[in-house]
Amino acid sequence: MSTATNEPEVVVSERVKGERRLGLWLTAPSFLMMILVTAYPLGYAVVLSLYNYRLTDPGGREFVGLNNYWVILRDAVWWNDFMTTLVITVVTVAIELVVGFIFAYVMLRIIRGRGPLRTAILIPYGIVTVVSAFIWRYAFALDSGFVNQWFGLTDFNWFGDRWSALFVICLSEIWKTTPFISLLLLAGLVQVPEDMQEAAKVDGATAWQRLVKVTLPNMKAAIMVALLFRTLDAWRIFDNPFVMTRGANNTETISFLAYRQNVTLVNLGMGSAISVLLFLSVVAIAWVFVKGFKTDLSQVRGD
C-alpha cells in the first residue's frame, strides 16, 4: 500500500477517467432536477422579494429594495406565526423524542408479537397527514367528536381558543410522526453493544444509570439526526393547522403564512420575502444543529 501512495499521481488512467465520467453522467439527472426545481425558484423568490408585486395589479410592480422584509419583521402577524411555529416545534419534538424512545425500546425488547407491532406502528407513519388531521379534528369537534362526551366537557369548543386548538394540532402531529422517530431511534438502539449493558449491570448500575450513562451516549448520533429531521419537519408544519383551523385564533404557522400571501392573496413580492425568511430560518436551525450541537451528518449523507 505504502509504495502505491508514494507514487506521484501525474497520469490519471483511462479507467479512472472513465469511471469519473460515468459517475457524473449517472448523477447528472439528479443534480439537474434538484437544482432546477429548488435553487432556481428560490433565486427567483429572492428577486421577487425586492419588488412590490401583486398579481391583481401587475402594472403597479415596482422595485422597493428590502422594504418588504422591513415591513414583515415589524409586523405582529409574522412574530405571532413565528411563536406558534416555535411552540408547535418545541412541544411536538420534545414529546415525540421521549415517547419515540419508549416505543423503540419496546420494539427492541418485545419477543412475542414483534412483527404485528412493527406493522401497526407503520400505519400512522404511512397515513396521509391530511387524513390524520381530519380524524383528530372530528374527534374533538362539537358536532361529531366523542372526546367531550367521554371526558365530560359537554360543549367545550376546542377550536375556539388558541392553546386548545394548538393542543389538538400537536396531538395529530405527534400521533403521526412518533412512529418515524421511534424507528430512527430503534436503528440507533440496536447498535448499542449488549455487553456494555451487562458490564454496567455487573458493576451495580441501576436501570436509570445504565440508560443515562451507557445507552443514550452510545446512540447520540442517531438521536441528534432524528432530532434534526423532526425539528425541521415540525418547523415546516402546514397540513394540520390548515385542515383544523385554517389559521384562525392565532394558529397560523410560517409555512401557512407563506402559502396565504403567495397563493391566496397572490401578493408575490411580500410572499416571496416570507419564503426567503422561511428558508433562512431553516438554514439557521440546521446550522445550530451541525455547528452548535455537533450533529454528525456524514452517516446520513452516506460518506
Binding site: 448523477t27 443534480f31 425541521l232 403567495n262 397563493v263 431553516v282 460518506d303
Partner: peptide, 22 residues
Amino acid sequence: LLSLALGIAMFPQAALVGPLFN
C-alpha cells in the same frame, strides 16, 4: 450530490409555493 440531497430533504417546501405558482 449527497450534500445537495441533504439540503433538499431539509428544504422548506412552502418557500417554493410562490415562485413555482408563478
